[in-house]
């Protein structure tokens, strides 16, 4: 038991290291940092510009602005990690042609993908922190570290990231079976979350049927918890559509929905893995 655990941890550690090397060793660290940060940060600037164009100033509606800003900052994890993790299979199979070697190694391929996700998470975390710091310093986003509910934040962050990671792994499983489609599927899932989970606007803006979809996705509760933990001075309850629930209730919803997604993700991964082996797709080369 202990040996198995040690082996699994070693798999995660070395695949994370491998992922880090693959992501970063093509250039010098400073340039890599710039490349990693510019994309998500400019994505945030677009939203800030849109806000300022319509309302004139971020101070016109500081609650909505903080809602949007913090939600968008944490959504970077969803977009970058989920997309990146699912791309691992395609990259290893089609580009580096190492998938077979990794797959037949005496390790859990599931955990290998999880390890690769960790390196993407580390890079994204930096972009999230820089975005938040910029928001606090330049745009008066009301993140208050002195008042932050750190325990809630820590637990919520961990569960949320684990959930994102497992959804990514499920998408990686789907990628076993697809050629070019994988990027479309990943983009689509991330887009659905962006649309339905109240990332940059409260879900109350959406029609009722769309709100119901949002309420079934853990990302909705995760973002709500991140906002409540980091910006306790602002009351999002009137706009968020989740105001009737306490922090603990939100944490409970997050945990339950994440567990449901975890079970679903493992099921999808295992089934896709089985199908890929059965149909001989593990070493597919679509030259794409």
């Amino acid at each position: 038991m202990r040996d198995a655990l040690r082996r699994d941890l070693r798999t995660i550690r070395w695949s994370a290291w491998l992922g880090w090397q693959m992501e970063s060793n093509w250039t010098n660290p400073l340039l890599f940092l710039v490349y990693s940060i510019v994309k998500p940060v400019f994505g945030t600037f677009i939203l800030v510009f849109m806000f300022v164009i319509i309302l004139g100033d971020v101070a016109t509606d500081p609650v909505l602005f903080s809602y949007m800003y913090v939600g968008n900052a944490f959504y970077m994890f969803v977009a970058q990690v989920m997309f990146g993790v699912a791309y691992v299979v395609q990259e290893d199979r089609e580009r580096f042609k190492t998938l077979k070697q990794v797959y037949i190694a005496p390790i859990s391929f599931f955990l290998y993908v999880v390890g690769r996700a960790l390196s993407k998470m580390a890079v994204t975390a930096l972009a999230v922190v820089i975005t938040l710091v910029f928001g606090v310093m330049a745009l008066d986003v009301a993140v208050d570290l002195g008042q932050t509910a750190w325990l809630m934040f820590g637990i919520g962050l961990f569960i949320g990231l684990a959930c994102i990671c497992t959804i990514g792994v499920a998408l990686a499983g789907v990628t076993f079976l697809t050629a070019r489609h994988s990027s479309g599927i990943n983009e689509g899932i991330a887009g659905l979350f962006y649309l339905f989970c109240g990332v940059v606007y409260p879900i109350t803006v959406l029609p009722q049927w769309a709100q119901n979809i949002g309420l079934a996705i853990p990302i909705t509760y995760w973002l709500e918890l991140m906002r409540r933990s980091l910006v306790p001075s602002m009351d999002f309850s009137e706009m968020s559509g989740l105001g009737e629930y306490s922090d603990l209730s939100i944490l409970l919803f997050l945990t339950l929905s994440s567990m449901a997604f975890l079970i679903l993700s493992i099921g999808i991964f295992k089934y896709a893995d089985h199908l890929a082996r059965k149909k001989g797709k593990l070493d597919m080369n679509s030259t794409y």
Partner: peptide, 13 residues
């Protein structure tokens, strides 16, 4: 999907 999200964002504003 992305376009719809931006439309709803503008509506929220």
């Amino acid at each position: 999907l992305g376009i719809a999200a931006f439309v709803f964002y503008y509506q929220a504003l």
